[in-house]
Design a binder for these strands. Sequence first.
RNA 1: GCGCUCGUAGUUCAAUUGGAUAGAACGUCGGAUUUCGGCUCCGAAGGUUGAGGGUUCGAGUCCUUCCGAGCGCACCA
Length: 596
Amino acid sequence: MYIEQQLITVIQQAFQQNFGLAVSHTDLSLQPTHPEFEGEYTFVTFPWAGRCQQRPEEVARQLGHWIKDQSPLISDFNVVQGFLNFTVADRVWLKQLAVICKDGQFGFLPSNGQRVVIEFSSPNTNKPLHLGHLRNNFLGHAIAEILKASGYEVYKVNLVNDRGIHICKSMVAYQQFGQGETPETTGLKGDHLVGKYYVQFDQVYKEQVASLTQQLGDRERAVKEAPIFLRARQMLQKWEQGDMVVRALWSTMNAWVYQGFEATYERLGIAFDRTYYESQIDLLGKQVVEEGLLQAVFYKKQDGSVWADLTGEGLDHKLVLREDGTSVYMTQDLGVADLRYAHYRFDRSIYVVGNEQDYHFEVLFKLMRRLGRSYTNNMYHLSYGMVDLPTGKMKSREGTVVDADQLIDEMVNVAAQYTQELGKIDDIPEEEAQQLYHTLAMGALKFFLLRVEAKKRLLFDPQASIDFQGHTGPYIQYTHARIAAILRKAQDAAIAYEGDILERHLALQPAERVVMMQLHKFPKKLREAAEAYSPAIIAQYVFELAKSYNRMYGEVAILQEREPMLRTLRVCLSATVARTIQRSMELLGITVPARM
RNA sequence: GCGCUCGUAGUUCAAUUGGAUAGAACGUCGGAUUUCGGCUCCGAAGGUUGAGGGUUCGAGUCCUUCCGAGCGCACCA
C-alpha cells in the first residue's frame, strides 16, 4: 500500500470528521512538497475553502491537527497559506523500505490479460539505418518493455518497406554501375552497399536533370524524363509484373540489406516477434478497398482511381487506390491493420512513426472507423519529432545523415577511452572489456535519445552525446557500478539486511529520506510512463534517483558507519537503489554494469 | 493559403496535468576526499516562460490575437 494512498484516505476521513464533508478519493490529490519547505507531501486546500466555509489556512490547520493526532503516518505538519505540508514518519519510510527491499518485483504489475501490438522501426530496404531510426527503435523497444512491466502481453512487429520506386532506384544504379559487387567482394555491410547505390542514383539523376533542363528549357519535364528515372519507373512496372530478372535482383539486394539490418539490430539490442513485408501484403489492402466501395465508404472516379471523401470531417479527398489499380501507402496500412488484428486480436495497437505522418494516421483511423472496424479506438499513433543536428536538418541526399553503425562505432571508442582513463577494469579479459564499452556506448546513446519527450523534436549534438557526465546514461551506470562495489565489500564483511531494522527507532538523515521517497515513487512513475507511452518519464526518474543517491553518498558513511544498525540499513538502501536503477534502465533497453 | 505541432536560463531539457519563490544538466566561476569508486559531491552567477489580452484564490500550463519555427496538404513510401 503506497504512502500517498494511505494519506489520502486519512485526509478523506479528516474532511468527514472535521467538516462533515463526504469527498471522494479521486477528488483528493497530493503533490511533492517543494524542497524549501518542511515535509514530503503537500495537500492544497484552496479549492476546499468554499465547501468548508473556512479560509484555506484554517482548513489546512484543522486537517493537519486531526491527522497528526489520529494517524501514525505523519510525524509532523505545517501550514503555509493554503498548503498543508506533511512530514512522513521515519518509521513509515523504514517499513516501506522493508517492503521494497523484499519485493523484487516492486512496481511491476501482474498480467492484466490484455494484448498490445507495437509496430516500430519499419525501415526502407534501400539504405542503412540512421539516427532518426535510432530514436524510433529505442522508443519502440522501451515502450514495449514499459508495457510488459505494466502487465500487458506485448508483441513487437516490424513492417519492412521492401517495394516501390525507391527500391528500384538502388537497383537501377547497381545494374548500371555495380559491376557485380557484393558485400563479400567489397567488405561492406549489405545495407551500406545498397545505400551506396541509392546515393549514386541520386547523383546521376541530378546531373541528368541539370543537363536535360538546359537542353529542353523545362525543368519539370526534365525531372520526369531523365533517362535514369525512366529506367527506375520501368523497373517498378516489371517488378509489379513479376519479371524474373528484376525479381531476382530485388531478392538478392534485399537479402544483403536484411543481413546488414540484422547486424545493426543485434548491436542495438532490438528484436521483433514478427516481421511483415509490404511486398507480401499488397492484396489485403486492395480487398479492404473493394469492401469500402461496396459500403460506399469510398468512391471511384471515372479514371478508375478510388478515393475517400473526408471533407465532411474537415479533411480533404484521399486517394486509396491508383487508376492502374496499384496500391498506395494508405492502401497498405488499411490491409495491415486488419491482418494485425487477425493475428493478435489486440486490445491496443501502437504505431511508432514520425510526426510527419500525423495526417496520414488521422486519415487512416477515420477510414478504419468508417469501415466499421471495432478496434479502431484501440489504435494509437505514437508520433515523435525529428532528430536535428546542430548543422541543421538531416538530409540523405546532402550527406548530412548520421549513420547508425558509424555512430555506434564512435561511441564505443569514446567509452573505451573514458574507461581506460578510469582504470578500474584493467584486470578483466579483453572480450569482457569490449562488451563493457558497448554497454556504455549504448547507454549513452539510448539515454540521450530517450530522455526527451517523444513528441518534441530533438537536437542531437554529437559533442554532448558522448559526454559521460551530468544528465547521461553513463552517469547512472556509474552510480550503479559504484553501489555494486560497495555491495561486494558488504558481502565480504557479511553485512546483510535484517528484518528488525524497522523495529528500532532509527533517525533518518534528510538525504536518506529523499532517496527512500525516490524509491517509493517508482510504481507511480512506471504507471505514468505506461499511460503516456513515455520512456522519458522513466529516464527522468532514474536520473533523479541516481542523483539523490549520489548526494546521500557524499553526506553519510555506509560501510564506514560504526553503528551496526545504521550500517545495515544503508547497505540495504544501497542495494535497493541499485536494483531499482537496474530495472528502470532495463525499461529503457539499457544495461547497467557491475564494474566500469 | 489551409491544417497539425512547437516556442521555458548562453545551450540541451524538466516543471507531478491549473499550485508555493519556474527546476536540472552542460558550459562559466569558486569550493570539497586522513573514510566506502572524483565518470562523484557542494556553492555562485544566469529567466519579463516569444509578445499582448482574457478566464480565477492562483496560468509556463486553459481561451484568444499576433510573431517565429518545424511538419503536412503527392496517382512517393
